[in-house]
């Protein structure tokens, strides 16, 4: 696979088709805009915001340089044992 064909996985809602009922603020919005976009969480103030490739790795509110990715919305199955 060439470098150009590689797509950055997006944290979009499509990964969770079985989710029913309410949708949560904590899930954040999807990547409706063009281009790969990721949801990030500020390590300091907890702000959720979207960043593109090339953007400065900084929180848009407080300027903190530690950012976290959100957990995947893929379903994980467990036995209650």
């Amino acid at each position: 696979m060439s470098r150009e064909a590689y797509q950055v996985p997006t944290g979009s809602q499509a990964a969770n088709p079985a989710a029913v009922g309410k949708s949560f603020d904590a899930y954040g919005g999807g990547a409706a805009e063009v281009g790969p976009q990721m949801q990030y969480l500020c390590g300091d103030c907890g702000l959720k915001f979207q960043m593109r490739r090339g953007d400065a790795i900084r929180c848009k509110e407080c300027g903190c340089r530690i950012l976290y990715k959100e957990r995947t919305k893929r379903m994980v199955q467990f036995e209650a044992r």
Binding site: A18, A26, E70, R71, K73, V76, F78, E79, A80
Partner: peptide, 18 residues
């Protein structure tokens, strides 16, 4: 008997929670 976790961002791990 079975738990399907879509999201769990709490401090308690999926396995322990289940």
């Amino acid at each position: 008997e079975t738990v399907y976790v879509y999201n769990n961002t709490s401090v308690i791990q999926d396995e322990v929670l289940c």
